[in-house]
Design a binder for these strands. Sequence first.
DNA 1: CAGTATCCAAAAGGATACTG
DNA 2: CAGTATCCTTTTGGATACTG
Lengths: 93, 93
Amino acid sequence: MLDLLANKWSALAIGALEAGPLRFGQLRRLLEGISPKVLSHTLKRLEAEDLITRTVYAEVPARVEYALTDLGTSASIPLKQLRDWVEASVGVA
Amino acid sequence: MLDLLANKWSALAIGALEAGPLRFGQLRRLLEGISPKVLSHTLKRLEAEDLITRTVYAEVPARVEYALTDLGTSASIPLKQLRDWVEASVGVA
DNA sequence: CAGTATCCAAAAGGATACTG
DNA sequence: CAGTATCCTTTTGGATACTG
């Protein structure tokens, strides 16, 4: 589990989902530089750890939304603090 | 920088140093399972990012101590919260 | 749109042996 | 004691093309 959160993309993806559910393409744009393969794998790992849910809406075109679970929401708190620290320390360093 | 903290061993090493300076061998025992090579590399990266200091004492046998810098200490706060979350969530999951 | 497949490079991790 | 050297495996990341 620590292995999972101790991952740049996982931490950023959870951060992106803090404000609400997002679709694959939206996540891809928010997480600049991530390739579809890596994003896909990252989301699967997060889903396997029960940090996010994957919901498919039977529409045309298909819509898939990713959202934080309660566990994921609880994880987002310390993760946000870590991201905030990084951002703050950039100015220092 | 996020890449650095987003790393299992880095996060654990900083946690180990929270209580005070430690020597290489002490860190090695505390971070169970880490190999000397990986520990060495981890410490070098942390030192390069100015999160820890490496001090060599001219004794026989040689003594080398690693300690958190102010920056490292400030990083240890969010990292500890993350580790605490992981520990708490283990019981839940 | 939401991925998967393929190929590949780079980084991280791990075991073990050896050295100043 | 405090590492470094070597070898090898696993993980992660990244580009690009393709599909249900």
